[in-house]
Design a protein around this nucleic acid. Structure first.
Lengths: 207, 207
DNA sequence: AGAGTTGCATACATGCGTGTTTGTATTATT
DNA sequence: AATAATACAAACACGCATGTATGCAACTCT
């Protein structure tokens, strides 16, 4: 029977928890203050750590942000339900918006925009950004991919949906009060009805 | 006949030119570096002035950015052609996108996003932002406004178009190379065809 | 149980961006 | 023409956000 020593944690565990807290705090700062006003002091303060801890695990802010975006990718990559057999565009839009709607998605947007303005940061974040954008692409579903190859109109509709939901997410990120929810629903409903029309026309396989 | 004295300029002229150069330099910095990496030193350097000049005309960065956004509003507010008699949604989308497409629109986006992350800046920029958003609203045209009041679907389509073009502008702002122009055209063409359908159905007045 | 390594805190040092002050030339006022 | 006010430059001083040591405690290995 293990004794009740308060320090029964392995080094790897301690590192993992510390890094996790730093990452969570960084995401929170990006959501609350945006990239421009996010500082390592505030991050460490929120994480309940000192800047020494941060600097022990990360060489600098770029390394931290890179790890943060990688972690965000993992969070957004996991699907909530198994819908591989549903190749409808409607489902793709629904799931995409469900992800962009989440508050942490603002952190993704902030890092994405910052990476474009800072070449050095951009180089570091490029892989994670590429993987993130792949999450919202329809090619993950082979059956839907075939439909897209066959029908250019479907591609256009998908892209319209992507750009519009990005726009909605941006507006949501900038005014977190729920005042714009009606606005969002109007756009979403229209997009979904357009997608349904296309899906029905092409006989998409639905569950 | 006025003598050829090199200093025949009035004080107001000097101030106006200096402020104009500061504003232009600020816009250029916002476009090139984004809000986070825009500094007054770089602004003054680009304007060919010292920081003393900047600080003589503006109390601080907030005052400068406020003036900049006000100026940007004026630039984007002026219509290129008289189209008051055309109440089609298609025209509204076309003109809106024509504005968002312009490179300086990135400066608007940067300031808009920054204003949301910084409450103090947000308060200063709020009036200009409100006026800017009004540029893209359809209520400017009374006839189109009536159609929108009568038909909720038309409102949804307009909002979809606005959000989608904002998304496109954001993408364009972040990757200024012309690689995405095909992408843009696909989305735009679809939007315009949807708008045309609605316009035709309701018998919009066209020139 | 000892030496060696890793995790983290404290304190220090530095660069950079901003606001402030002082000084000088140009324009306006009378 | 003399005085006042304005436009701008140059130099200063400060805060703040990084990055860099140094030191101690916790864990790992043999």
């Amino acid at each position: 029977m293990p004794t009740s020593r308060p320090t029964a944690r392995t080094q790897a565990d301690r590192s993992a928890e510390t890094k996790g807290r730093l990452i969570d705090a960084t995401v929170a700062c990006l959501v609350d203050y945006g990239y421009a006003r996010t500082t390592t002091v505030e991050i460490c303060s929120r994480a309940g750590l000192t800047r020494g801890a941060y600097n022990h695990h990360y060489a600098g802010t770029e390394a931290l942000f890179t790890d943060v975006l990688e972690q965000l990718y993992l969070r957004f990559a996991k699907r909530e339900s198994d819908t591989a057999h549903d190749d409808s565009l409607e489902r793709l839009i629904r799931e995409g918006w469900a992800k962009m709607k989440r508050p942490e998605f603002k952190a993704v947007i902030e890092l994405w925009l910052a990476s474009r303005n800072d070449p050095s940061l951009g180089a570091s974040l490029a892989p994670a950004i590429a993987r993130l954008s792949r999450i919202f692409e329809p090619r993950a579903n082979p059956s839907l991919g075939e439909r897209l190859d066959a029908d250019p109109d479907l591609v256009a509709l998908y892209r319209l949906a992507f750009e519009a939901t990005i726009g909605l997410a941006l507006g949501r990120a900038t005014s977190p009060n729920g005042s714009a929810v009606q606005h969002e629903n109007q756009v979403l409903d229209l997009l979904l009805s357009l997608a349904r029309d296309q899906d029905r026309r092409q006989g998409a396989e639905r569950p």
